[in-house]
Design a protein around this nucleic acid. Structure first.
Length: 217
DNA sequence: CTCCAGATATACT
DNA sequence: GTATATCTGGAGC
């Protein structure tokens, strides 16, 4: 499938809506950066202050400050000591809500994505795994710390978000978020994960796990 | 498929 | 000071 280069960049109004509406509509959208374009197949909604799974749960901190910037801003954070994940800020300005980009299909610039994803001396990554998973997606697009805070609705922004899910024959499915431990202790009570049915690039579901202590051996 | 170690910025006590 | 994290790749079933 050839990416539509004529699709308009999504405007501020698109992101300035309920975060769940934004999440659903981002499915099928194209995100382009540094020579690679992906088509989003899986996302998660994070509700801002008060959502126990969200980085904004306890309010604004230096790390999550971008979540409280204008909708359409790109929130890239570092986690697990080695991975970057990317979100698009959604909802009213200052609410702290965002949509995590969890899975995508590389539709252009696959060679470049492969340079970023393939490890030297190891078998090549299967095409469907290039951007399957939030950290893999960020690697394929070449997103990391310097891109945190970019305003993707600006015409000159190097990160371009365009198009949206428009195929009524492909249903949107929902389920619990990945890696989030809910208030009850096990699992996430919010079905705020959205994906396109039948897509091979949707990441495998892994329930949130409480890690066992492993300090002093 | 499931289990598990890895490496470190961040936020909380 | 210390527990945790919007995860991944490799090992073993």
């Amino acid at each position: 499938m050839r990416p539509r280069t004529d699709a308009p960049r999504l405007p501020r109004d698109f992101f300035d809506r309920d975060v769940h509406a934004v999440a659903r509509d981002l499915l099928g959208a194209h995100v382009s950066h540094a020579g690679v374009t992906v088509r989003i197949t899986e996302v998660e909604a994070y509700g801002g202050v008060g959502d126990p799974g969200a980085h904004a749960f306890r309010g604004r901190t230096p790390r999550n400050a971008v979540l409280f910037e204008r909708p359409g801003s790109l929130y890239v954070y570092f986690t697990y000591g080695m991975h970057f994940c990317s979100n698009l800020v959604a909802g009213p300005h200052g609410q702290g809500a965002a949509v995590l980009l969890r899975g995508a299909e590389v539709v252009d610039g696959e060679d470049l994505a492969r340079v970023r994803r393939d490890a030297p001396g190891k078998p090549p990554v299967p095409a469907r795994d290039l951007a399957r998973g939030p950290a893999r997606l960020a690697v394929s697009l070449g997103l990391s710390r310097p891109h945190n805070g970019l305003d993707t609705v600006a015409p000159d922004c190097p990160v371009r978000v365009a198009g949206r899910h428009a195929d009524p024959d492909v249903p949107v499915r929902t389920g619990p978020r990945v890696g989030v431990t809910g208030p009850g202790g096990d699992g996430d009570s919010y079905p705020w994960r959205y994906w396109l049915e039948g897509e091979p690039t949707v990441s495998a579901y892994r329930p949130g796990v409480l890690r066992t202590r492993r300090t002093q051996p």
